[in-house]
Design a protein around this nucleic acid. Sequence first.
DNA 1: TAGATTGTTAATCGATTAACAATC
DNA 2: TAGATTGTTAATCGATTAACAATC
Lengths: 212, 212
Amino acid sequence: MNKFGVPIPTIRRLPSYLRVLQEAAKESKEYISGTVIANALQLEPIQVRKDLAMTGITGRPGVGFVVKDLILAIESFLGWHNTHDAIIIGAGSLGDALAGYEGFGEYGLNIVAAFDNNPLKIGKQLHGKTIFHIDQMIDLVGRMHILIAILTVPGHVAQDAANLAVMAGIKGLWNFTPTKLEVPGHIIVEKVDLAASLAVLSKKLERDFHSL
Amino acid sequence: MNKFGVPIPTIRRLPSYLRVLQEAAKESKEYISGTVIANALQLEPIQVRKDLAMTGITGRPGVGFVVKDLILAIESFLGWHNTHDAIIIGAGSLGDALAGYEGFGEYGLNIVAAFDNNPLKIGKQLHGKTIFHIDQMIDLVGRMHILIAILTVPGHVAQDAANLAVMAGIKGLWNFTPTKLEVPGHIIVEKVDLAASLAVLSKKLERDFHSL
DNA sequence: TAGATTGTTAATCGATTAACAATC
DNA sequence: TAGATTGTTAATCGATTAACAATC
């Protein structure tokens, strides 16, 4: 086990289970087995069972898991049972895309405001969220006790934006920029690494089509 | 070793090395050691050396690697030495963000066109790329021998869009939707899984702030 | 009872890390 | 020569997978 208590790959798979479960709930299914979840996601049943066990839930042999309980167990395990407020830093098209992403509600994420340094954008809306000037970040984040910032600024100002967010009291940075951020030890950074993702795609394609 | 020949984590780290190397090249540094790269990225030197070895390059003991050679070795290894044309399916704000992402040039990715089914968008531009109707996809992809499609449609039409892309001859799908895609065995799918990423962030935050 | 599934314990697999001789 | 670094071989670590008794 890692120092963290739960394998990171397990944490990453849990949301996909949630999606299957919500589908099952919609179809009014009371029980679901690890096997059924595994088939839906092309995983091994044993892996699903091991992952689910990490959330603390226990199933009924021969039957499976209570769908509703399992949903609650996963949401609670991930900290998605009550929503967390977040801000978007960078009101460009990526910020706009994320501000407009309805799915975040299910993930316990509530975007309350956006910030930018472009005077032309201040006061405008990003999918219904007001865009503030970054100078107001410290005040607003402090008063609202916001813990999460979504970084969608250009890469060359990402570090500055991160510094500002940390000064404002942000504890978690969801980093959509290509920049590797330097932050104090107690700050959590989760990077959505497009270059890494594209590298995997490229390499797999290359293997299949040596001409590529 | 996996069936694939190279550890996926290694492939994912290589682009970050590239960034450090391009910085070093900009500063006209001729050599760089694995140790220096490791420090810049907060990794272990041995891991960097192991990763670099996978690209086939060999360094000089006591000195390091030739920066220019190393850049070429990584780019070539990832298939980024010559660009691949790609299309964007879904001309929403996420598609717009990706179409406008200048960084892709470095990653060997060239976005040539966008597709949408909204008549109001057809003929317009997405960051300089013309938006075509999805009915034209088969013709255009076929004639231009495009291998990669970037999926930025709403989740509920992602499978349809993927089917269409596959019919058109696309070999690799870069999936930005929350939908798990079902595709023929020879099609590569790389998913940018926001829910998985957010789950990791949430869980790490929860560990640090049990109140959260 | 027969069939399905869970959850535990053990085995395997793959990636990371350590140790160190060889080299510049 | 002394110090730094590579690249190889071995050890460790962590995650996945297998096997199977217990349960419904």
